[in-house]
Structure formats: C-alpha cells, structure tokens
C-alpha cells in the first residue's frame, strides 16, 4: 500500500499506510506508533503544532469535558523549534516513517524561518500548516513555499474549507487536511469557555466536510481528521474520499489504537 501526498512535486511524501498519528514529537512515542502486530506501521507522525519560539500556552484550565469528547485550548503550548530539533533530530533521522512538522499559527516570517530550517532536516517529510483568522492563509503558504521544497499540507477549518481549498492549492499547498478540530464553547462558572472539540462528536462534522471537498474534484490528495477512534471510523473517511486519515485524541485514551487501526487498514 502506498499513498502519495505530494504527487508531481519535487519531493515526494509517500505513506506506506493511510493512518497518520498526530501529537508529540517522538516517532516511537511510548507504545503509540510502534506496530503492535506484525511489521505494520502507521503512515506518518504529524507533530504537535510548533512555533519558532517556545510557548507556555493558554491559562488553566485548558481542558473541559463535554458530551462526546473534550474541548481543548492549549494556546499552542510547545517547546519551540530549536528545542524540538535538539531533542528529536536523532530520532527523526532514524525514523522509519516520515515526520510531518505541524506549524502553529504565528507570524509568516517565523513560518518561513522554520520551513527553511526544516528543509534539510533528516527524516522530515513535510509541513502541515495550521492557520488562524488573523493570518492571510494564502500569503502564509506562499512564504513557506518560497522557503522550502518540502511538501506542504494545509490543515483547514471545517467551516470554511470549501471556500479556501482551491486557493490554498494554487498558492502552493500539495495536499489538504480536512480539518482542524471544530471550535466549540461551554459556559463555565457563568463565563464562556472556548476551545476546539476533540472526540467522537467531531467525526460527523469532519466527515461531511471531507465529502464536500471531494465533490469539488480538486486535483490534490486529501487527508481526513476528526474523531477517528476505530478502524471503522477510518474506513468511513476513506470511503468519503480521503486518501489518508489522521487520528489524534484517540491515542490519549488508548496509546495502542493507532497501531491497531494501521494494522487493520493494511489488511484491506
């Protein structure tokens, strides 16, 4: 099985399994991406969204449970790219699967600096861009494109993916990820609390968005993301038109789930 996320591009990004894991930085993240059965491995690791400089993240609490999952607001807490490269460059170099470095929303110049640094980092197979409403997504993609030949995945918000997908590809993205965790809100002690929704409740929303993008008939690979907790969930996204599937919060609950889904998908 082979899935190409950057067809007709100078540098390929080939997955040997459609299941991608998001989170952390370690390709052998304890029990997470190690195959539990046979020699099957997940297709790629997409790192935690990262910024050029360290970020302490949002004030506490950052997690609020809700029916069907959890609202999460980390404020892009991360140790910064320099620290990540110091800690993980050996592991990435030796990784059997491509590492896709996710960029958290920040200034376009910082993205270009990060992209240039990663361009020659062994083991890094691509970049996944996470935008926020204050960024001009197309300018940001162009800036990253100018700084690296690494394949670019644009991870879009579900609510406007259909409107911006074609433009993101025209600006230089090689593939689309549909999509970011949906935005949600709860009232906590009388005040609104905003976060992104992870968990099974996110799946139908993402699935619909994936099908809508498929219907646009864009000439680019599509990765699905949203509420994947089982092989059946992953298969639904593949049936809806995705070429690969990211799983995120499911491994918080069960670290071995990614390897198990990958093994099931490898068997067809």
């Amino acid at each position: 099985m082979s899935i190409e996320l950057a067809p007709n591009w100078k540098r390929s990004l080939t997955l040997t399994n459609p299941l991608m894991l998001t989170g952390g930085y370690a390709p052998n993240l304890a029990k997470v991406s190690e195959p539990s059965q046979g020699s099957t491995s997940i297709g790629a690791l997409v790192t935690l969204p990262t910024t050029l400089r360290p970020r302490a993240g949002a004030p506490l609490p950052r997690v609020v449970e809700t029916a069907g999952g959890v609202l999460l607001r980390t404020g892009a807490a991360n140790p910064g790219l320099a620290h990540v490269l110091r800690e993980y460059d050996r592991a990435w170099e030796q990784s059997a699967i491509p590492i896709i470095v996710a960029f958290a929303a920040q200034g376009v110049n910082d993205w270009a600096t990060m992209a240039a640094q990663l361009d020659s980092t062994a083991g890094v197979g691509g970049i996944e861009l996470h935008f926020n409403p204050t960024m001009d997504a197309l300018d940001a993609i162009r800036a990253v494109r100018a700084a690296t030949e690494l394949p670019i995945l644009a991870k879009l918000d579900l609510d406007n993916a259909r409107d911006v997908a074609a433009d993101c590809l025209a600006a230089g993205a090689n593939a689309l990820v549909i999509g970011r965790a949906p935005r949600g809100m709860r009232i906590i002690e009388g005040h609104p609390w905003y976060g992104r929704m992870y968990g099974p409740a996110a799946k139908p929303l993402a699935l619909r968005a994936v099908a809508e993008i498929r219907d646009l008939r864009l000439d680019a690979p599509m990765v699905a993301c949203g509420g994947v907790h089982s092989t059946e969930d992953a298969r639904e996204f593949l049936a809806a038109g995705a070429g690969a599937v990211e799983t995120d919060s499911a491994v918080w609950l069960e670290p071995a789930v990614a390897a198990r889904i990958a093994a099931d998908l490898a068997q067809g």
Partner: peptide
C-alpha cells in the same frame, strides 16, 4: 495537579512554564 489528557507527551495540555523552559 492539572488535567493530563494523554500522559505520554502527545497533547501538551499539561505544559507548564518554568525557569528551565516549557
């Protein structure tokens, strides 16, 4: 004592700022 969704370094929801970095 913070919520720790994953326990494995995958989510960074439990990140704290210290004088020695995040």
């Amino acid at each position: 004592d913070l919520p720790m969704p994953c326990g494995t370094g995958a989510c960074y929801a439990c990140a704290v700022e210290t004088s020695r970095g995040v």
